[in-house]
Design a binder for these strands. Structure first.
Length: 110
DNA sequence: GGGTGGGCTTGTA
DNA sequence: TTACAAGCCCACC
């Protein structure tokens, strides 16, 4: 991440890169920003307090287990947003999470 | 300016 | 499936 950017900024920027119809996990972001999956807690904080709720698709971030986890506006809301993008939701978990999982290190990360 | 607690998590037993 | 422990950042006092 950029030195001039803070942890929160780095997290938000990564989430912004998530394309529609795709989702990622807190651990992935935490690994990209801090390199520690335990930082996922901090990632959630950054998303929960995202200063750009209209630019940061925090609803595209779910748990590593596929569970939606939580949402400041409400889990139900998060589910609707994901379904609106074409992502299937089973109860409180994302179906075929491995297929919609978006990887940051996929390309351009050399 | 310093110390403590909470949160949209993760992994193991 | 449930319960416990670890590490990280922000807000409050």
């Amino acid at each position: 991440m950029d030195e001039g950017e803070t942890f929160q900024e780095a997290v938000l920027k990564l989430v912004m890169q998530i394309p529609k119809g795709r989702v990622t996990t807190y651990g992935r972001i935490a690994n990209e920003v801090k390199g520690s999956v335990h930082a996922a807690r901090a990632v959630g904080q950054a998303l929960a307090k995202n200063p750009h709720p209209g630019v940061i698709p925090c609803h595209r971030v779910v748990r590593s287990d596929g569970d939606i986890g939580g949402y400041s506006q409400g889990i139900a809301k998060k589910i609707e947003l994901l379904r609106a993008e074409g992502i299937e939701i089973e109860g409180r978990k994302v179906k075929k999470i491995n297929e919609v999982l978006f990887q940051f290190s996929s390309v351009g990360r050399g």
